[in-house]
Amino acid sequence: MVIGVLALQGAVSEHVAMLQKLGAATQELREPQDLTGLDGIVLPGGESTTMRKLLERVDMLAPLRAQIKAGLPVFGTCAGMVLLAQPESLNALPATVQRNGFGRQKESFEADLTVTGFDTPYHGVFIRAPYYSAVEAPVTVLATVNDDRIVAARYQHLLVTAFHPELTADPRFHQLFLEMVAGK
């Protein structure tokens, strides 16, 4: 199983380390040619505006959008969750995203979350994090903060978290994604 990690900017090495620990092969994605032979893709945390501009600059935005539309599984964390929902970016997940929804860096936080399908709480690390304020019907909400801020969700072959599983040692979200890839 080969998982591509978008490597234009952001917390790339952390995702690569976590995926490899779980037995997946990884490939860093920097140019359109890298988008071949992949079973799934991780869009890491970072600055979503920077990533979108870099995707456009190397002509990677359109092919990536096409592959996702064709069914390639994607796990987006933080910036990745933003890119998947933004109409001007990947336009793949029907949700309304609030960038930096929790505020500036001094409002960044850690909190234990109740996640649908997990037996015990999941410790989320939120850094200038986004959230979804609304989602359309087939999207499954997996976790919220303050009841109405959606911070983890699943939609068809897409998985998103507003927090950073790659910064903790808890592999459950990466495992869930690899199961989604395997069961595709």
Binding site: E14, C78, F109, R128
Partner: peptide, 21 residues
């Protein structure tokens, strides 16, 4: 309970800047 200003969110913020200008 949400906790702000932790070592992880402070260092993590810089991790998110990697590969950038």
């Amino acid at each position: 309970m949400a906790e702000t200003g932790t070592t992880l969110v402070k260092r993590g913020m810089a991790e998110m800047q990697k590969g950038g200008v």
